[in-house]
Design a protein around this nucleic acid. Structure first.
Lengths: 138, 138
DNA sequence: CTGTATCCTTAGGGATACTG
DNA sequence: CAGTATCCCTAAGGATACAG
């Protein structure tokens, strides 16, 4: 299925970001890549939120189209895709960390891992550096 | 119209945030309050993205329900609403600033005000402090 | 000006079956 | 396992008219 790219709504950078990521699933795929080292289709499906297969396929395609992730066709494994963050995708790290801090702070029933949250709060830049390195060395 | 709150999908703080803000409009309303000092219905309608009246009404109601904004019925002006960010809403400031940095950096056609972007990049904490103060002193 | 309400269309998304 | 395809329903959203 080919999909026409939706038109940008304005020159605002927030609007730009929302045009790409303003839905309930895209950022969860990013999260799985970024923090949990997931790379394969089936791994994304396993996440707690329970994304549907068609939605996942759609989001992977979109994110690739937006230059946030890459898909490496692994011919050795018989045409299975391996997904990874691009530099542009990895640049979302500060955004996502702030989302985590906000969510963990304001959700009364949060299940966020508090040791990690505390570390981000204290050592934000170090955490960024560490996670970046982990992705760049693969 | 009453709307049933959609169920949370998981305990993940990112998922929590997306459950509240994962659409293409909510964060633009937050932006208008946060940076442009907008407070009234008609002011939100004027923004470049062109939100529809029914969508705006819906989002204002939702954001109020989520505790991100307040609506002050101004009886002096004949029942007009004045909207403002709550502390919880204002806490989104770091998130939104990172979104701006990312969007301004990666959108080839960005219309972001570059002086502001550069200032955020250099003096992030000072910008946060300044904008917080502006809202808390109203 | 600040909303509500209605109509209608499209996009999002859940469930599930199916293919290489 | 890694997707595609289909069915079907609901939510999101645009346009516009209307009310206090």
């Amino acid at each position: 299925m080919s999909r026409a790219k939706p038109a940008r709504r304005s020159g605002c950078p927030i609007s730009y970001t929302l045009d790409l990521l303003g839905d309930k699933w895209s950022l969860l795929v990013i999260r799985d890549l970024m923090f949990f080292g997931k790379r394969r289709y089936g791994e994304f499906l396993e996440s707690a939120e329970g994304i549907a297969t068609n939605i996942l396929a759609d989001r992977l395609e979109r994110l690739e189209g937006a230059g946030l992730i890459t898909r490496n066709e692994d011919s050795a494994t018989g045409g299975k895709g391996e997904y990874a963050l691009t530099a542009k995708g990895l640049d979302l790290l500060p955004v996502v960390l702030e989302l985590i801090l906000w969510g963990a702070h304001h959700d009364p029933k949060t299940g966020a891992p508090m040791e990690f949250v505390r570390r981000v709060k204290r050592d934000r830049d170090a955490v960024i550096k560490e996670i970046r390195a982990r992705h760049e060395n693969r």
